[in-house]
Simulated assay, not measured.
Amino acid sequence: MNSYKHAHLLIEKAVSKGVRVYAKTKINGKILKENQTQFFTETGHTVHAQTVIFATGYEAQEEVKGKNAVILSSYAIATNQIADQAKWHDNMMIWETARPYLYARKTPDNRIIIGGLDESTGYLEKRDSMILNKRDKLIKQLVNLFPELENRIWADYFWGAFCCETHGGLPMYPDHPNCYFLLGYGGNGTVYSVTLSQIIMDLNTKGVHEDSAMYVKERHFSKSIVH
């Protein structure tokens, strides 16, 4: 999906429900205490809040450099259009559990998107310097999966981007009073964020959620819980 358009539609829906949105408002100072939560804007305004939710994605590392967080560089390509992909079973999405991993899927216009081959670097110049090499490796990996595509595919589009995950795949919980961090880290971060948003909503409206123990710092898991 178009994630940029999707985010804006969510914001529009929130506004229709009464949420006030202040675009391009930079926060350049804050006071976070148990009985006092204030944010100061660059225009001199002060925002008071009972609860703060940080939903800033990887940029949260500028706020709290969590030792549990790792910034990676990931790569992907979109191939030329290929009409005959008969050996692709049921148009399934492919996602390896290996590290580094590969994922691949078909698009409605008969392209193949394949990506992965993550590198442990958060530096823009180093990330971009490897894009062409990763492009060629991804083509080879795709041919390894589907030998019949050899000499029939090339990368019409290719790119690199940062992604962030935690060492154990578990949430981050910085010691910020009255604050929650909803960041979408990891390959399944979007799914986890939906779950966590429901937990945060109930904690703030009802004071309790049966699964909040998975988020708070002092987690105690039973043997039946698998993350």
Rank of each mutant, 00 (worst) to 15 (best):
92 M>G: 03
73 S>E: 04
97 T>W: 09
122 G>H: 10
94 I>K: 05
130 M>Q: 12
106 K>R: 15
80 N>G: 00
128 D>F: 09
124 L>K: 11
140 K>Q: 15
58 Y>I: 15
125 E>P: 07
72 L>D: 02
146 F>V: 05
80 N>Q: 04
75 Y>L: 02
111 R>W: 01
68 N>K: 15
141 Q>K: 15
152 R>K: 14
91 N>C: 08
97 T>G: 01
133 N>V: 08
64 V>Y: 06
56 T>S: 13
100 P>L: 00
112 I>F: 07
90 D>G: 04
80 N>I: 03
59 E>R: 10
149 L>T: 01
132 L>R: 12
123 Y>Q: 12
63 E>K: 12
108 P>S: 09
55 A>V: 09
127 R>N: 10
121 T>A: 08
101 Y>Q: 02
114 I>Q: 04
150 E>Y: 06
132 L>K: 14
98 A>Q: 12
66 G>N: 11
83 A>P: 00
97 T>A: 09
76 A>P: 04
80 N>M: 06
143 V>A: 01
68 N>A: 14
97 T>Y: 04
113 I>F: 06
139 I>M: 03
60 A>N: 13
93 M>T: 07
66 G>R: 10
58 Y>R: 11
114 I>K: 07
133 N>I: 08
57 G>C: 05
72 L>W: 10
97 T>H: 07
121 T>D: 05
145 L>V: 00
104 A>Y: 04
147 P>T: 00
148 E>Q: 02
123 Y>L: 15
106 K>M: 14
108 P>A: 10
65 K>T: 08
76 A>K: 11
122 G>N: 14
130 M>A: 08
131 I>K: 11
77 I>H: 08
133 N>K: 13
125 E>F: 09
63 E>Y: 09
92 M>L: 06
122 G>P: 10
119 E>N: 05
96 E>S: 12
140 K>H: 13
112 I>T: 09
85 Q>Y: 12
91 N>F: 11
81 Q>A: 14
119 E>S: 12
69 A>N: 06
97 T>R: 11
116 G>Y: 07
131 I>P: 00
66 G>S: 15
116 G>T: 03
82 I>W: 03
123 Y>K: 14
100 P>T: 03
141 Q>E: 13
104 A>V: 05
144 N>Y: 07
114 I>C: 05
65 K>F: 09
112 I>A: 04
128 D>G: 06
76 A>E: 06
124 L>S: 10
90 D>P: 02
57 G>K: 03
91 N>I: 06
103 Y>K: 01
100 P>I: 02
129 S>C: 07
150 E>G: 03
127 R>L: 15
56 T>P: 07
63 E>C: 08
110 N>D: 12
103 Y>I: 00
109 D>M: 02
139 I>Y: 00
145 L>R: 15
84 D>Q: 12
102 L>K: 00
141 Q>R: 14
92 M>W: 01
85 Q>M: 13
61 Q>R: 14
147 P>Y: 01
116 G>R: 02
98 A>R: 12
148 E>A: 02
72 L>P: 00
151 N>E: 10
67 K>D: 08
121 T>H: 03
80 N>R: 04
56 T>Y: 00
105 R>E: 04
109 D>S: 10
141 Q>V: 02
109 D>R: 04
136 D>H: 09
84 D>G: 04
71 I>A: 08
69 A>H: 04
110 N>K: 13
68 N>F: 08
109 D>Y: 02
137 K>L: 15
140 K>T: 14
86 A>F: 11
